[in-house]
């Protein structure tokens, strides 16, 4: 496996009138070629911010990247640090080598431009295709993502499509320029389950076909189970656990991940059982973290949890957790 993206020690703060919001605290992870990495977390955990920042899509100010590197290995021979690129540099990569699928397709697409133009525009820009060639490629792509009557639909506007169809158009936009990475930011959250299943399957097919690495941002652990190779669980702006999907579901290590798993009802519902909820609420991000952010809600805290920020600890092959407590053996982890 070779790396396609490597994010190191990313720290992002939002300088607002009310104070500094510590949105991301020291986020590091790698993305391998062709894999699906799911980023899971509750709202405000920083899962979208981490990805938006890589493509310079955060409004700066108020956002500010305080620290970190993001090495992208897909643009030419030399790796480039996405965060250090200037405007024209990132424009060459954004929408080209790295595609993006947004949650709300209606507001992400330009309402006064036909969808055909929106897709072909990016192929003309990034791949240097002529008008006619771009149109042919676009129609082929629309057909591939399952839009019936692609040639006629080429001249339709976004509002003429249903929610599921619009999301298919978004997928076509993101994959138009043979990207190396596609970042999908909650692409199915606004869709019904039956349509969600269609979109998930389509993304999986296209990913295999074009050998794309997909970063799938979501809060739905069910979707993750079906499609992710690896999962990154985020809490309050920091990754708490990274593991292969099978491993994570069978053997969650961080108390937050364990809590999340227990909070889900099983589909074979038993009427009388209660869900195990995680008490309390996510912390206020206005305060600078000095200790484990999950300590307020964690059932296993001991004195060290309130003194230090836990570092990432390897607990198995490809399984990293940021926690001082070994839940399995009910004792604190030794210094690693």
């Amino acid at each position: 496996m070779t790396k396609i993206l490597s994010v190191k020690n990313l720290v992002i703060k939002f300088h607002t009138f009310d104070g500094v919001v510590h949105a991301l605290n020291n986020v590091s992870f790698d993305l391998q070629k062709g894999e699906t990495l799911a980023i899971v977390g509750e709202s405000g955990s920083g899962k979208s911010v981490s990805m938006l920042s890589l493509l310079h899509l955060l409004p700066m100010p108020p956002a500010k990247i305080e620290n970190g590197e993001a090495w992208f290995y897909g643009a030419g021979k030399e790796p480039v640090d996405l965060l250090k690129l200037n405007r024209s540099g990132i424009s060459k990569i954004r929408g080209g080598k790295i595609g993006f699928i947004f949650q709300d397709a209606l507001s992400a697409l330009n309402p006064v431009m036909t969808i055909g133009r929106q897709i072909s525009e990016s192929t003309m820009e990034h791949l240097g295709l002529s008008h006619a060639k771009a149109k042919e490629k676009t129609i082929k792509l629309l057909d591939r993502v399952g839009i019936p009557g692609a040639r006629q639909r080429y001249d339709n506007f976004p509002h003429q499509f249903s929610g599921g169809m619009r999301q298919r158009v978004m997928i076509a936009v993101s994959m138009a320029c043979n990207p190396k990475i596609v970042i999908a930011d909650e692409p199915t959250t606004a869709l019904d389950v039956t349509v969600q299943a269609q979109i998930v399957d389509l993304t999986k097919e296209l990913q295999k076909e074009f050998k794309i690495a997909v970063v799938w941002i979501t809060h739905d652990l069910g979707v993750v189970a079906g499609m992710a190779d690896r999962v990154l669980v985020m809490y309050a702006g920091a990754p708490v656990e990274i593991a292969e999907a099978q491993d994570l579901y069978a053997n969650p290590q961080h108390p937050y991940t364990i809590g999340l798993m227990n909070a889900l009802p099983s589909v074979k519902g038993h009427e009388d059982s209660r869900l195990t909820s995680i008490d309390g609420m996510p912390p206020d991000l206005m305060e600078e973290p000095h200790h484990c952010q999950f300590a307020w809600r964690c059932p296993y805290t001991f004195d060290r949890c309130w003194k230090e920020i836990p570092q990432q600890i390897m607990v198995g092959e490809n399984h990293v957790v940021s926690c001082f407590f070994d839940v399995e053996n009910r004792r604190p982890r030794g210094h690693v």
Partner: peptide, 27 residues
């Protein structure tokens, strides 16, 4: 049946090995 099969199960082994009825089109 198709609605039940479209609901993702939070368990990778079961989720990946089951047969799904995926409905065509939309409501």
């Amino acid at each position: 049946q198709s609605l039940m099969s479209a609901v993702p199960i939070p368990d990778p082994t079961r989720e990946r090995n089951r047969t799904r009825i995926i409905l065509e089109g939309e409501v």
